[in-house]
Every structure is written in structure tokens, then in C-alpha cells.
Amino acid sequence: MSEKDLKNKKSDVAVDEDKRDFLFVTTAGLAVAGSALTVFSLIDTMNPAKDVLALSTTEVDLSPVEEGQSLTVMWRGKPIFIRHRTDSEISDASNVSVDELPHMASDESRVKNPKWLVVVGVCTHLGCVPLGQKIGDNKGEYGGWFCPCHGSHYDTSGRVRKGPAPLNLEIPPYEFVTDDIIKIG
């Protein structure tokens, strides 16, 4: 724009710098806040939806599971291992000195009723489903579970004993609704 044009402008009044800064900051501030809220709302659509969250509790009837047997149920799309432990499995699990474990935890701290072990059947290494639920499966060196992916061994309390997995099998939140029914989630 040429000098002449500028002079021809209606207002020759000096620019009020403070006013201009104020307008700039408020405008930009509002735009940033608005965009941030919009982006947040849109990204939030990718979080679990209501119907997905509604699937987050599962009730399981334990009565058909005999001692020594296992049951796998689904909870939040993941397998839950439920094992009706024999007396020898319970004693194997509790007669270990906790200090020697890679991820220290006593058996009592991992069960609500020692007869029933309930764990998330997802290897804490990289997420494979360990073997040991079916008859004839390789249960690993400690009689619990064995993960075929990279060779992690879990004991009858679901604790990692050997292999690359860093943590014990996770315990899902659950409670006994009656003696025979548990509610997971």
C-alpha cells in the first residue's frame, strides 16, 4: 500500500497499541481455548463408549467347577482364569519364601478364598495368553501357567517365577456374591 493511500484513510488518529494488544490477546486466547475444547471432545470419542463400559462386570457361577479344574471367562474382552485349586496347589503356593520371588507377593494377598484363584489370563510380558487352562496343556515348571510366546512360567498363585515377564498375573477386581458366585469388575 502506498504512502498516499495510507494518508487518505479516514482516521489519522494514532493507533492505540494497548487496545490492539488487548484485542489480540483476547481473540487468540478465545480461539485457543475453543479449539482445545473442540479437539478434546473429538478425541474423547475414541475413549471407551458407554456400551463398552457397560460390559465391565461379569458374574460367574463357580458351582460346576470341580477341584483341580479351571474355567476361563471373558471380562472386558480379556480372558479371566479361574482355578479351583487342590490342597497341594494351595500349599505349593503358600510355602514359597516371598523374598525369592521376582515380583514379591504372598499367596494370601492374591486370593479371597484360597480354594479359588482368579487372575487375568494375560501374560505381563507382552500380552499373550499363557497355557495351563486345558487338560494336557504345558503348565510350566511351577504347575501354574506357561506362556509359549517367550517362555514365562507362572506358579499356582499366578506369580511369575521364571522368564521375561516382570509382574505376576494381574488380579481383577472381584467379589463373592454368594459362596458359589463371583462378580468380576
Binding site: S41, L42, D44, T45, N47, A49, K50, D51, V52
Partner: peptide
């Protein structure tokens, strides 16, 4: 319909 009812802000989307 699930987008409209269950997905977070799905109606908005």
C-alpha cells in the same frame, strides 16, 4: 444409533 447414544460426544461428531 450407537454413535448417537453410547459413544462419548458421538452425537456431536
Amino acid at each position: 444409533e450407537r454413535i448417537m447414544r453410547d459413544v462419548n460426544n458421538g452425537w456431536l461428531l
